[in-house]
Amino acid sequence: MSDAMPVVGLNPSSLTLILLGGALGGLLRYWMTAWISSRIGDTFPWGTLVVNVSGASLIGVAAAWMLSGGPGGGQINAWAWLVVGILGSYTTVSSFSLQTLILLRGSRLPQAFFNIFLSVFLCLGGAALAYTVTGYVLARGI
């Protein structure tokens, strides 16, 4: 399996797929964040954390699947739509950054550092675990 990410060109087809995927990813991000906040409150940015962890995990699955040469493998349009468009728009590092800054500026240091630790640890862990498990499954034809 190659770890090199495909290069998406600036052709009209790829740009349209990124645009459409980005719109869908943004809507999914908004819905998931609002849904989580409505369930457990917004005193901590749980919705953003859930979006970032699930997005990191999904991008791990997508990368392992597409880079393995399996279904969707090597298809630049699938990469443009799913990875760059949907998942690139779905994950919310910019929201994470702003929410953490607000926590820091509000002298809520323990919550800010807890958010940083959880976001980095869980997102990196989610991507690594999903990538590894998907690669294992694909290699064994499970």
Rank of each mutant, 00 (worst) to 15 (best):
T100F: 02
S95M: 08
L124M: 15
G125I: 12
L98P: 08
L101A: 04
L98C: 06
I142G: 04
T48H: 03
R140C: 13
G135E: 13
N115V: 00
G72R: 04
A78F: 02
F96A: 04
Q111G: 05
I86L: 11
V133D: 09
G69H: 01
V137A: 10
G60W: 02
N77W: 15
I116N: 07
V53E: 00
W46Q: 13
G69N: 10
Y90A: 09
C123K: 07
A64L: 03
G85Y: 00
L98M: 12
Q99E: 15
G69E: 02
I142S: 06
S94R: 03
V137I: 06
F117V: 13
A130D: 09
G135I: 00
A130C: 15
F96V: 04
A78K: 07
L129V: 14
F117P: 08
F121K: 13
N77F: 07
V51C: 04
I142F: 07
L124Y: 10
A78Q: 01
G73I: 08
L67H: 01
I116V: 14
V50Q: 09
A130V: 05
S107D: 12
L58F: 06
W79S: 05
L124D: 12
V53P: 04
N52E: 01
S89L: 08
S94T: 14
V137D: 05
G73Y: 06
L98E: 08
G85D: 06
A64I: 05
I102A: 10
S107H: 15
L118R: 00
W46H: 07
T134M: 12
L129A: 08
S68W: 01
S89W: 00
S107N: 15
R140K: 15
S89N: 02
I142W: 06
I102E: 08
A64V: 08
Q111N: 15
S97W: 07
N77V: 09
M66Q: 10
A128E: 03
G70C: 06
A128R: 13
A128I: 10
A128T: 05
A112N: 06
Q99H: 12
V50A: 13
A56I: 01
N77P: 05
G70L: 05
S119E: 05
V50I: 09
V83L: 01
F114G: 09
F96P: 03
T91Q: 03
A56W: 01
F96G: 04
W81F: 14
I59H: 03
